[in-house]
Design a protein around this nucleic acid. Sequence first.
DNA 1: GTTCGTGCAAACGGTTTGCAACAAT
DNA 2: ATTGTTGCAAACCGTTTGCACGAAC
Lengths: 134, 134
Amino acid sequence: MAISDTLAKKGVRPSAQRVAVAEYVLSTREHPSAEQVFADVKRRFPQISRATVYNTLNLFFEKGLLRTLTLTEGNVVFDPMIERHHHFVDEQTGKIYDIPWGALSVRNVESLEGFDVSEYQVVLRGRSHKEKAK
Amino acid sequence: MAISDTLAKKGVRPSAQRVAVAEYVLSTREHPSAEQVFADVKRRFPQISRATVYNTLNLFFEKGLLRTLTLTEGNVVFDPMIERHHHFVDEQTGKIYDIPWGALSVRNVESLEGFDVSEYQVVLRGRSHKEKAK
DNA sequence: GTTCGTGCAAACGGTTTGCAACAAT
DNA sequence: ATTGTTGCAAACCGTTTGCACGAAC
């Protein structure tokens, strides 16, 4: 499906700028910050402004196209709304890795008293030995 | 043990301001923001400055007296370094609840390939039915 | 008397907002 | 014509920093 259709389906009018942002941020596995999104999009779309990128990211968030994560000290990053997954944060580099949902299992979530859980994830920290950041 | 001894033991000189901050933030279960700490301490210690509160919180963090959490949209809060626990975030109110470590169990953490996990926690979101905020 | 801690105000950085021009319907 | 979108620059807000004064050793 074309990106512009994905946007339209969520009630977002697919302007050229929004498509350019979407092309990057809805498919990446990089967990980019707003600034990184701006930098990437600007390469292909030099006249885009920072405000538009911020507004667009907020719009995508409101429309449920992406999530925001703040796993490290005040650094907000964006995560496309793909399947559920956990996160691992490399404490040296700050790099965030996706952990497949099935790699871990959490027991007793449904038996928590007084809490109606709509979603959850495990956040792990430590050192990664993977060379390639993904 | 007196608060000033706790501080001294961690290599923090127990000035009056630091003790005032510590009294609140090392014993609370409120997950306060820096601003909340400032407001609370200022009630008992009106001449304290914002800068001192921020510096003190950072110092406590460096010395391992407390943790920082950023579970909701760019709101950094402080959590005393007590036993391990998980966190539940009420999506309506933003309020953070501690979940006892033993209430959940996570399996297969040690079998993650390429990751050396030093700590982890489950972050849950949803609605809380508890009336009293803790 | 040298080091450490405090308070003030200014600086900072990431994000949001007001506004005027422009495009789409 | 009305409504939505963009770009710019200014405003904003939480946090950090530079500096001078005062306290502790």
